[in-house]
Computed example of a mutant assay.
Amino acid sequence: MVGITINEVNIKNPRELQEIKGFLKDFSLTLDKDIDYTLSITEDGRLIATCSKEKNILKSFAILPEYQGEGLAAVMVTRIMDKLLEEGHETFFVFTKPCNKNIFISLGFSTLYEGKDAVLLENGLTGIEDYLKKIIKSNNIDTLKSRAAIVMNCNPFTLGHRFLIEKAAEENEEVIIFLVEEDKSFFPFNIRYTMLKEGTKDIPGVKLISGGKYIISSATFPNYFIKEENQRLRAYAEIDAGVFYRYIAKALNIKKRYVGEEPYCNITSQYNEALKAMAKEYEVELIEVPRRTMGQKAISASSVRGYLASGDIEKAFILLPATSAIFLKSPEGIELIEKLKRSHET
């Protein structure tokens, strides 16, 4: 097409970014704050299409109606996938409305899970079957043996987390703990992994596995096409639970999943409800365990972060296993506490 130009948008330029936001607004879409790469297509200077990404997730995809069916979708998606390959990503994802599913299927994506309000598709050099084979091999998992599982974030690892793991370990020969890998928590993944590993090494039958790309963090689930918070939470919970049950639980012969009761966090509460609703369909027993309390209050990682941020170190340490407290007394831990205090002050 004459006059068509594909452009890399300077996302640090407020004027260029505002033009993309304004364009998306006409489609009732937004631009997620964590996008790291954006393309635009213009015709004689007029913006007619855009697509963005955050790490390996394609986002904020829009084309003017009169230009749809002209091959612009393939141009943008191919260009972004080339960028992802350059960055070393082997798997790419798209969260989108179900009505847009066929656009991405025509571009080589396959549907992982379709819910009422959102669908998750993947493409790339590797997929979920490769992920599961790698887990089974690297962790020496006997897939003929049934087991239990827990998904955790551990931001940081508390006595409440340990209580849930101990409960599962008492009732099952083997328990796999999937630690959410997405680094959108205050404590980085490598630190959360170390605290969890050190804090559970005395509990028999526990295997710790990085969650990888398929344990979906609520922080990763995009906002751009679902604005209403409760609807977005339901969509996230349905997709993440669906992927877990349909693929992970089936491949690893997981027959029980343990969760802690959630009196405080709306996201986790809705997630637990989605897990309950879908568990029977996939022949997995969902076990909701009452939270461990200290005094009359349930132990939570958010309370620990709050105490650390306000300087109440001793109150925080009461809620932590000795292994977590030891880390927080280390130079790296002290540096993180100071960072948390500064963020609290601002």
Rank of each mutant, 00 (worst) to 15 (best):
L275H: 05
L319C: 04
S302V: 01
R234N: 11
N272P: 03
A279W: 06
R305K: 15
Q270M: 14
P290C: 07
I267S: 12
I326H: 03
L275E: 05
N230W: 01
I226M: 00
F327P: 09
A298M: 06
I248H: 04
Y247A: 04
Y245A: 03
Y307N: 06
A279Y: 12
S300I: 00
Q296F: 03
K276M: 13
G295N: 02
M294K: 10
E285Q: 15
K329N: 10
K276F: 12
V304F: 10
L252Q: 10
D240K: 02
Y271A: 02
F244C: 11
S303G: 02
Q231K: 15
Y282F: 15
L308E: 10
G311K: 09
L252E: 06
Y245S: 05
E285P: 07
K276S: 14
E262Y: 05
K315Q: 15
F225Q: 06
E229D: 13
S300H: 05
Q270C: 00
E238M: 07
A237K: 02
A298G: 14
P290K: 12
A237W: 01
K255I: 13
E273N: 08
E314A: 10
G242S: 02
S302N: 11
E288R: 06
V284C: 03
E261A: 15
L233N: 12
Y282P: 03
V243G: 09
E229Y: 13
L328I: 05
S303F: 01
L308A: 08
K297I: 14
L286V: 14
I239P: 01
G311S: 12
A251T: 11
T293I: 10
K250N: 14
Q231H: 02
